[in-house]
Design a protein around this nucleic acid. Structure first.
Lengths: 209, 209
DNA sequence: CACCATTGTGAGCAATTACTCAGGTCTTGC
DNA sequence: GCAAGACCTGAGTAATTGCTCACAATGGTG
């Protein structure tokens, strides 16, 4: 199913405004269709139908089905990664709880748009090699940031910084995803508070600050 | 892809020993194939080939592809659920940390067999309606247990018990799964220690016990 | 307006895949 | 030894689906 035709087409770039609109319609439709039917059952013909364009047009902008998913995921990652990085100076000078809260809050709000789509994308990542690299990079960045925080912030006391950093990143990403996308989803505010409490206590090592 | 033919076949029961062996071969092969190729690309013909039986035999025991996944998942859930429940009496009388450690340890060892397969199964759950009911039941059981622990154990101090219980369950299941199945997986022992520390501190609310 | 590149169309092809069925082979009970 | 059922076989079928291509429509430019 994952097409392995190494050669990636840099399909034609849109030059007229019309083309740009079509491209956007495809992406919007794909997001909708994938979220509703899942990746396998979200057929390209269905996407074209939803976008009210012909299947031929779709393939003028995306060389194959995977490419559409890849672009959706890329956009999500890019938007998530941009708002994230703080300079190292500020890490040490801000209260730990505030740093954690910032991260958790950002992650939650990033998931509130379309949890269903997120779910599909995360699941399909391992099947699309191009995405693997990109998500791996993204994850590595987050882990590096967490490791920085864990090792440099004065309030932090943990046994194993490397494991702690990975646990931190995984916990935030996964629980937010799961508890927001769940059928009976948890109230985002409560989730934020509990998560922040948990992580802050953990990093402080249970000692008074 | 998810066949909606409500009527489930109780395909013929094996009566000879030969048949029982075939059934087992199918399951083993399916686990292997799903883990290696994923669900969509894990075709029934491939499973039959791996099991060294003909495709026809496969369909004598399983009415469709979904049914195989369902049985694999059912078995996993049953084995996981059995070892889990403690009587309410003992909850209050055991140290909190020990209770948590027990749970985390069990979850980790339950994932060490075949993380890849687990991954596939968890992803495909939402597509197979029969499984949804079963996993929902399983999850509900775990959450109920956690809620019991959170509300009745004397060492516990949390703001919102319901959210805390769900956070607890999700955190253990998801982080274990992710960090064990990851390409560069975390050392299980360290993971156990860090997770236990984090959860225990959280539930105790940061106050001295 | 006239020309041509850009963009859009959709019937249909090739490949894949879940699943069937007509007929074989083995096991068991007598 | 011999029926009769249990079990197994695998080429074939129907349906799905990603994707192509020959052609039509549209937009900009002189």
């Amino acid at each position: 199913m994952a097409s392995g035709n190494g050669a990636l087409h840099p399909r034609k770039q849109p030059v007229q405004a019309r083309a740009e609109r079509t491209r956007k319609r495809i992406l919007r439709a794909a997001a909708h269709v994938f979220a509703e039917y899942g990746y396998a059952a979200g057929t390209t013909n269905r996407i074209a139908e939803q976008a009210r364009i012909s299947i031929g047009s779709l393939y003028q902008y995306y060389p194959n089905k995977d490419a559409i998913l890849v672009e959706l995921m890329s956009r999500h990652l890019d938007s998530g990664a941009s708002a994230l990085t703080l300079d190292r100076e500020r890490i040490a000078s801000m209260p730990l709880e505030e740093l954690i809260r910032q991260d958790v809050h950002l992650t939650i709000s990033n998931h509130l748009d379309d949890p269903q789509l997120l779910r599909i994308m995360l699941e399909q990542v391992p099947l699309a090699p191009e995405l693997l690299a990109k998500t791996a990079e993204y994850r590595a960045g987050r882990i590096a940031y967490a490791l920085d925080l864990v090792t440099r912030h004065p309030e932090v006391r943990v046994e194993d910084p490397h494991v702690a950093a990975r646990l931190l990143v995984s916990t935030v990403a996964l629980t937010v995803h799961q508890l927001i996308a769940a059928p009976d989803s948890v109230d985002p505010e409560s989730l934020e508070n509990e998560l922040v409490t948990m992580l802050t206590l953990y990093l402080k090592g249970g000692e008074a600050s």
